[in-house]
Amino acid sequence: MANALPHIEDSNKTTYLPPVGTNETFADEEDYAEKVREWGLSTTKEVKKQFWYKEATFQRQVTIIGYQTYGKTDDYYTVIIEFEDGNLSCIHPAYLKEMQSPSFTKLVTSESENSPTETVPTKTVEEKAAPAEPKTKEAKPKKEKKEKPKKIELPEDKVHFTAVVKQFAYSWNHFNEENDEVVVLENVRIEQEDPIDIGLAWCSHSKTLKKFELSPGVSLEFDGKIVKKKLPSGKDVEEEFIISDPVPYKINNPSKIVKS
C-alpha cells in the first residue's frame, strides 16, 4: 500500500534542492494536465494534483507548481515540487514517478544496505617517457566557413501567430515511453509590429486542436508561447507520420484559434 510509511511533515529529515534561475509556471489547467501526462505522472481521466515524495523511512505529500527546462534544445525537465510546509525542491519527473510505486521505499532501503563501502585504490602514476620530437604537419587547406543562420530572439510572453498545417506526426515521449501525436506547422510567423518568420514549429495535437479537424494545407491564426525545443522523432511509426526536416521550435498551448 502507498500509505505503509508514516506521513510526516518533518523538514529536518528532508534534503531540499531549491530551484535556481528561471521557473516556468503552468499557463492553465490544460497546460498542467498536458505536462503531467507527458511526464507519465498521471494516467487517469482526472489528472493527479498530489504526489508522494518518499525516502527510506518516511513519505510526504507534494504538489507540482512548475518546472525548469535544460539541455541544448530544452528537451529535459526538472519538476518543482512544493511540500505542505511551503518548502520547494527540484526533482526529475522520472524519479518522482518512481516514488509513486508502493515498492519504492523497499528499493531505496535495499540499495542503501548493499552499497559498497570499500575505498577505490589510488592508481600509481607511471613515470612519463620523454616526449618525442613533434613531427611537422603538412598545412591543410582552410575550409570555407558556412554562414550561420541568424539567431531568432524569441518573445517570452504569448504572441499572435499565423501558420499552415504541414503534416501530422508522432514524437517519442521518453517519460511514458510512448509516441505522442503532434502537429507540424510551416510558414510560422509571429505577427507584430516587426513580424518574425519562424519557419517550422510543432505543437501537441491536443483535444482543443482535434475539435478543429485540421488537415495539411489548412491556414491558422492563434495565440501561443513559443520555445526553442526540437521535435523528437517517433519510434516504429509509419513513414507518413515521420517528419524528415528538423523542427526546432515548439508552440505551447495555442488558443483563440481561427481556421481558414
Rank of each mutant, 00 (worst) to 15 (best):
R189E: 12
E177R: 15
A169D: 00
L220G: 10
T25C: 09
P19A: 09
P155H: 00
K140F: 11
P18T: 05
C203V: 14
N87D: 05
L107D: 07
T43C: 04
N114V: 03
I257L: 00
G199F: 08
T14V: 15
T22S: 03
P149K: 00
L200R: 13
T105E: 10
T57Y: 10
W202H: 15
K250A: 13
T105N: 14
P195W: 07
F161A: 06
I152N: 08
P248C: 02
H205P: 01
T105R: 04
K228T: 12
K45V: 13
K13H: 04
S206K: 08
L17I: 14
K35T: 04
A130F: 06
E213T: 05
P232Y: 10
N3G: 08
K45R: 11
P18M: 05
K230V: 13
D223T: 06
T15M: 12
I80Q: 10
I243W: 01
T15Q: 09
A132P: 08
N187H: 07
E153M: 04
P246W: 04
S101W: 04
T63P: 01
I198A: 07
E213Q: 12
P6G: 07
H174I: 06
Y53N: 07
K123A: 14
S101L: 13
K128A: 09
Y170S: 10
V79I: 15
I257S: 00
I243F: 05
T124V: 12
E127M: 03
P246G: 05
V20Q: 13
V36S: 03
V20K: 14
N87R: 14
P134F: 03
I8H: 06
S260L: 14
G86C: 11
C90P: 00
P232Q: 15
T105K: 02
E29P: 01
L154R: 01
I196K: 05
F51R: 10
L41S: 06
I80L: 08
N252H: 12
H7K: 14
S42K: 07
T136N: 10
E239Q: 11
R60Y: 02
N187T: 05
S101A: 14
V227P: 02
F58C: 10
A129T: 11
E240A: 11
S255W: 02
K211D: 04
S233E: 15
L214A: 00
A129M: 07
K45W: 07
S110H: 08
E138V: 12
